[in-house]
Amino acid sequence: MSDMQTQTGEPLLRIEGLTKFFPVSGGKRLFAVNKVTLEVGKGETLGIVGESGCGKSSMGRTILKVYEPNEGKIVFDGKDITKLSRKKMLPYRKRMQMIFQDPYASLNPRLTVGDIIEEPMTIHKIGTPASRKAKVQELIGVVGLKPDHIRRFPHEFSGGQRQRIGIARTLALEPDFIVCDEPISALDVSIQAQVINLLERIQKERGLSYLFIAHDLEMVHHISHKIGVMYLGHLVEYGDADEIYKRPKHPYTQALISASPVADPKSAREKHRIILEGEVPSPLDPPPGCPFSGRCPHVRDECRQILPDMYDYAGRKVACLQYSPKAQGITLQ
């Protein structure tokens, strides 16, 4: 995938050991994102899946420096932006944008659609008022809305249309990288596909990169080139989307994929479901060792003591001791 690299050979975005914790009462720390390392190439979509509270949204926000990272490095287009000041961050903000989950809460109800789409350009002082208006006209068309929608207010639109408005606003600054934070979760099934197709079309036309956060595994598999699976703030499996979806290696990924209901009665009847015991533990009180050890059907004693690294295995990275070089050496013998 040579065209997915920038000219310098660097991926568009690289994060290394990114950590974000929130101090909570009692002097404790809640680790929302825990030493996550991953890359997003140019024109590529990285899907992030995981259950609620696993830190996937926090990670998206930390990458955009909405939250200041506590540890680790964010490298965007070859430049380390981890420690940049607000002011120095501005040119990068233009290139890194976000689409939010709730199209009802993320649009200002007092602004017209035209104002909403124009606002980012005004803030970043791009173009003249006339050229901005022309840009708004263009974007409205790109996302499949009608020109007479420009003077209307958000409340006049349905969820899917609002999400289109949000996408138009995001595109106003012509970003290279967009964090899509559950962009379809709030939408009806028939509308979800419209938004997904729109995102895919825009990506093809403009060579955008997406970090696509969602909990719908089928949709993430559909839209992503690579997938990262998160559990309790940790990235537990990361690699090619098809590989992970069809041949998951981490016990959590296996359970997640087997548990997600398939809209196909025959395969649903044949499918062997791995039903996990219990629920996701509180991130305030994670188990020692591997975060998944408390629910893992293959748990061994060492899992409760050692936090696994991301090991290279079967063309991907897996954070599970059964794939550690040591374990692999043993199985080979």
């Binding site: 259950e51 909990h215 595994l217 359970a255 997640l256 087997s258 209901p261 479901r273 039903i275 996990l276």
Partner: peptide, 10 residues
Amino acid sequence: DVTVQAQILE
């Protein structure tokens, strides 16, 4: 969540 959903459906 998905894994809990599977438990409840079962």
